[in-house]
């Protein structure tokens, strides 16, 4: 199982410091819920899409859209049917289908949701996991919490591998010579042994993990130093300032008062 969401590339987003970039993401995600002009929301979506395209390729840039395509369709289908107030502008036969208000509503919802999706995706694509972790630390996450995060990432592929092997092992053990004999019900019943074996396997690694953490000095009263550091080219202050400016410009240009 690949745990990395980072996609190597060049450009502004890779230069932008992980801490300041995180601030931008949070600010933008909050701003889209303020009364913004619809054009503004679509500009955000457009810019984010272009950034994604530039950072990766067209196919990858479409990926977030594809993951939420279905919900977008549901929204398009549901919202007109549930917003019945106002002036109808579209009829299907005799049936009044959509009102102007509903159109505005669905447009805003879609643009907002797309915007959030792209902004979040861009962050995890252009920031290495280690840097995200350091950014959280900078915002006050404790060392131990950050360590849990790192260790979780270390164990995901390990447990995923073991889990696949466990499934295989059970498949071989349960195989019967006559084809088609294992029905759906049987397969459902086989979930319990597989899950149990996987959990026992995972739980057994816990004492050894705790043991190794202590063997490598966790618990010692010596003050820990840090191998990894975030380096913001031009100073972190510049980056944070830039981050706030991006949000401010977006806000001032597109807010409706």
């Amino acid at each position: 199982m690949t745990t990395s969401t980072y996609i190597a590339g060049r450009g502004f987003l890779y230069w932008f410091d992980a801490r300041a970039k995180l601030l931008t993401v949070v600010l933008l995600c909050v701003l889209v819920f303020l009364p913004m002009r619809q054009l503004g929301l679509w500009v955000l979506v457009g810019v984010a899409f272009l950034c994604a395209w530039r950072a990766t390729d067209f196919k990858q840039a479409l990926q977030p859209l594809r993951t939420i395509l279905f919900v977008l369709i549901i929204m398009v289908l549901f919202t007109p049917l549930t917003y019945r107030d106002g002036e109808f502008i579209l009829f299907i036969g005799q049936f009044p289908f959509i009102t102007r208000e509903a159109l505005v509503q669905v447009n805003t919802l879609i643009a907002r949701f797309l915007g959030i999706t792209y902004v979040c995706s861009l962050y995890v694509w252009t920031t290495p996991m280690a840097d995200i972790n350091l950014a959280f630390r900078w915002y006050g996450l404790s060392y131990q919490a950050a360590l849990v995060l790192t260790l979780a990432f270390r164990f995901i592929p390990f447990i995923a591998d073991a889990f696949r092997m466990i499934q295989d092992s059970h498949a071989l053990r349960n195989a019967v010579r006559i084809e088609g004999e294992t029905g759906k019900r049987q397969r459902l019943l086989d979930v319990v042994p597989t899950v149990t074996a996987a959990l026992v396997f995972a739980l057994k690694s816990i004492p050894y993990l705790a043991m190794t953490l202590e063997h490598r000095g966790l618990g010692s009263s010596v003050k820990r130093t840090s191998y990894r550091k975030l380096h913001a080219k031009g100073g972190i202050f510049t980056h944070v300032l830039l981050s706030v400016m991006i949000a401010a410009v977006f806000f001032l240009v597109f807010i409706t008062i």
Binding site: Q144, F155, I156, L199, A202, P207
Partner: peptide, 21 residues
């Protein structure tokens, strides 16, 4: 502390694996 961290980390990883698989 080490045991607590180990428990959290391993169970988190198990949740991730079960969510994705």
């Amino acid at each position: 502390t080490a045991l607590q961290i180990a428990l959290m980390a391993v169970l988190t990883a198990v949740v991730v694996v079960f969510t994705l698989m």
